[in-house]
Amino acid sequence: MSEARPGGFLIIFGTFLVGLVLSQLPLPDTFEWGRPEWVPMILIYWVLALPHRVGLGMAWMFGLALDLLKGSPLGLNALSLTLIAFLTLLIHQRLRMFPLWKQALMVMVLVGINQLTFHWMQAIAGNARDSFMFMLPSLVSALLWPWVFVLLRSIRRTFRVT
């Protein structure tokens, strides 16, 4: 914390912004259901790597941004992202020790919780969901996790964000 550079915040912020844009990128119809959940993945990484800098507040803020982008009731993504940020904080020390594939499994569970909370709340808000296909992104995110992890780690190391 003492050697934190002012630029570090910008890097973290930047990766989240990229995640937000990626989550809006149009996909062909066939992949529509399997869109990886970029923002939760990036959030999990940063909470895992720098739990003292990225926490619930940041999760809440970017959840709100995601809500604005998606047009969902304000606060929905904020809620689900805060929740998984909290869960990641709880287990981050164990999670760090896991090999990548085990981490990916945990990411699947965490993103799954995110999806469940989000779609469950959406259903309460009146946007009925009629299939369980919305759980597919958690699988896709888990498959992508090793690459996301390695990429973000190299970004973190190059810019020495601590």
């Binding site: 709100l64 929905l76 009146g126």
Partner: peptide, 23 residues
């Protein structure tokens, strides 16, 4: 606090038309 805040926000957004402007 954040979770509560989020829940409040959801409720406000669903039930309070003036949230449209804020949004």
């Amino acid at each position: 606090v954040l979770v509560l805040l989020a829940l409040l926000l959801i409720l406000a957004d669903l039930n309070w038309p003036r949230m449209r402007d804020a949004r």
